[in-house]
Nucleic acid binder design. Structure first.
Lengths: 196, 196
DNA sequence: ATTGGAATCGGAATCCGATTCCGGTTCACC
DNA sequence: GGTGAACCGGAATCGGATTCCGATTCCAAT
């Protein structure tokens, strides 16, 4: 990485100093620990647990994430990002668009089903109608593409919108979280409801 | 180790004494207050608030409901009961069974949408695969009847089960809770997915 | 390589809210 | 009217998230 060519003597207002290496390392450690713990043990995980698992003090956890909620949200966002990446790689590339769409939803189910604590934020992510975060925007975009392809192939009704997919995903998350029943059946019904 | 069965002059095991009038009154007050507050202000309501609104001490709240969670669950159960009653009165009586089924789900949506804090327990109620509580059992029964009628009229696929309805309802609750989008659209899709 | 000082660290102290405890009071029954 | 079990109120306790601050570490300019 070439050092910034024209560094004025005075620190620039926006990005002055290179962030400290240890700070970034710690942030990553905390996030990784949180992700692991919340996935495994769910909501019963406490902040001291995270700090201990990350090998840092509680204060450090709070420096990087202003609250427990924020920490969980950050961990959940990573989880969401995985799903989006999968959709890009495995779903958008299928020739049968309806299959791709189904695979996308199915993947969400699998990821959440293997998880005990990060479902809630992911659910919230699908739930929120809009902005917060690049990952969410990206997810919306990918889902939109998936949907457009399926419509073009006449496999999905023309009046279906991306929000409909998000609602289905949000419901899916809740069903899995509560252990309501066989989520694959739910998805089958939902997908059937999308067809012309 | 239970005391010897031979019951002396002591009160019968089942119903010994008439429950104290003030106790029952207080219980009702607490429940009513809780219901109102949670519906209006959601999860941010605190136990002292409930006690104050009910005009009793905190201890009294805890005598009747062992925990905050239990209190919310009890309040939510009332809400659930309303829904079940509506289903009995307005949905089971329609000649068009599919319409009745749709009306049932729609009603759930309306009730939850007008509520800010009791959605979570109701969601849990639809979520749980099994027994807890007479209301829930009753709800399952009514939903089963609704479904059977629709199947008999050929308006719903034969392989649909009651749990499928519960999953749809559970998803609906989550969608409304998170404000995910237009829940009526969701229901339209779900109902479409039920058809043969 | 040394040094100044801003950012980071760690964890003890604080805060908030649910839950428990217990002396005083009330009610159903005799 | 008397009696004891059940109930009442609310102060005290407890658990866990969040804040605070002196000590430490790292970046960058000398």
């Amino acid at each position: 990485m070439p050092p910034p060519s024209a560094e004025s003597g005075a620190p620039a207002r926006g990005a002055s100093r290179k962030p400290r290496a240890d700070a970034e390392r710690n942030r990553a450690r905390v996030l990784a620990a949180a992700r692991e713990l919340f996935t495994a043990r769910g909501d019963e995980v406490q902040m001291p647990d995270v700090a201990r698992a990350a090998g840092v003090g509680i204060g450090t956890v709070y420096r990087h994430f202003p609250s427990r909620t924020a920490l969980i949200a950050a961990a959940g966002e990573q989880r969401h990002a995985e799903i989006v990446e999968f959709a890009r790689a495995e779903c958008l590339t299928r020739s049968d668009a309806a299959e791709g769409l189904a695979a996308y939803l199915h993947r969400i189910g699998e990821v959440l089903a293997a998880d005990r604590g990060l479902s809630a934020p992911v659910e919230a992510a699908f739930g929120s109608t809009e902005p917060t975060g690049e990952v969410q925007a990206e997810g919306l975009r990918v889902a939109g593409d998936l949907l457009a392809r399926a419509k073009a192939q006449g496999a999905v009704r023309a009046d279906v919108e991306v929000t409909d997919l998000n609602m289905i995903a949000c419901g899916l998350a809740a069903i899995i979280r509560t252990g309501s029943g066989d989520w694959r059946r739910y998805l089958r019904i939902a997908c059937a409801g999308l067809r012309p």
